[in-house]
């Protein structure tokens, strides 16, 4: 599997203290690979080192130790950023410019000709949902959600193969979050690689195929989301209806927890290792109707909480 982004033992110290500055380690030997065409989530609580990692990848910070590569080239190679789109956390853009002017300016910096910049700007502003009547207004009049849309437009204007988003859902309302999610899914469907940081696990669970969980500057969990959650099976859940009290009591011996939903409808939570077949056989014999049997996996939240503790 080809890596689009690779970090090896990436470490960053910042000097802290006024009189006698001492190095404080904010990132400690972080190594991960982002596979081509996947959505990779960089997760972690506040202060875990997510933004520092992204800034190192964008060459906004220089590593104390270790190395980072994008498309097999060191991140210090400015040419590699021709293939990368980036939206920083809570972006600020020149408020005297209009959305159109800003995106065209950034398109030019990415090497697009004037004609191409104008055409691509119109296309990406449409794609990110910036309305025609808003495109020539100064950005100082834009809401946070609209600025995020403009931020996405500038990141996509040069048709990048890798899109890096730092906390893209932060501060957005539910509609804004949904729209950003949809754009990320579209980017994935187009075969682009997306690396985004977030502490909103529901979004990560919905979007990511791979994740790295950071805590206190270190990678504490890394891999495919399915691989991370599969080993942590939490038993299974059997939902049945038309269950009489006697059958319910008999099954209670097999179940870790029994919940009566309503009118003879029950949910039996079976402990890990307890197979559902004997329970289903008893219920069938008692004339109950099977509604569903579902394995209960650990959620990303379970993995996350376990990893950062």
């Amino acid at each position: 599997m080809q890596s689009v982004v690779r970090t090896e033992q990436l470490t960053k110290d910042f000097l802290t203290g006024f009189w006698k500055p001492r190095p404080g380690r904010v990132l400690d030997a972080v190594s991960f690979d982002v596979p081509r065409g996947e959505v990779f989530g960089l997760l972690g609580p506040n202060g875990a080192g997510k933004t520092t990692t992204i800034k190192l990848l964008m060459d906004l910070l220089r590593p104390t130790q270790g190395r980072a590569e994008i498309f097999g080239r060191p991140v210090s190679d400015a040419d590699v950023r021709q293939r990368v789109g980036f939206v920083p956390e809570q972006p600020y853009y020149y408020d005297h410019l209009s959305a159109e002017e800003l995106v065209q300016y950034f398109a030019g910096l990415s090497g697009l000709s004037r004609v191409d910049a104008v055409a691509r700007t119109a296309a990406v502003l449409t794609r990110t949902g910036v309305r025609d009547e808003d495109r020539r207004r100064p950005l100082r009049q834009f809401s946070k959600g609209m600025l995020q849309r403009v931020g996405l437009a500038q990141a996509l204007v040069h048709d990048p193969e890798l899109v890096v988003l730092d906390e893209p859902m932060s501060g957005l309302d539910p509609i804004g979050r949904r729209d950003v999610r949809q754009i990320i899914m579209q980017l994935r469907d187009e075969g682009r690689t997306v690396l985004f940081s977030s502490h909103i696990l529901a979004d990560a669970e919905l979007l990511c195929s791979h994740v790295a969980i950071l805590a206190r500057g270190q990678v504490v969990a890394l891999g495919k989301l399915t691989d991370l959650t599969a080993p942590a099976m939490h038993g299974s859940e059997v939902v049945v209806s038309n269950v009489n009290a006697e059958a319910a009591a008999r099954i209670g011996a097999h179940a870790a927890r029994v919940t009566e939903i309503a009118d003879g409808r029950y949910c039996f939570e079976l402990a890990p290792g307890e197979r559902p077949e004997p329970v289903i056989a008893i219920l069938a014999a008692a004339g109950a109707t099977l509604v569903s049997v579902s394995p209960v996996r650990a959620s990303l939240e379970d993995i996350f909480l376990e990893a950062i503790q």
């Binding site: 906004l60 400015a78 950023r81 809570q90 090497g111």
Partner: peptide
């Protein structure tokens, strides 16, 4: 200060 430099230096701009 305003962090607008992040967007600029993330371009192929030396």
């Amino acid at each position: 200060d305003k962090r607008s430099i992040y967007g600029l230096l993330a371009r192929p701009l030396r």
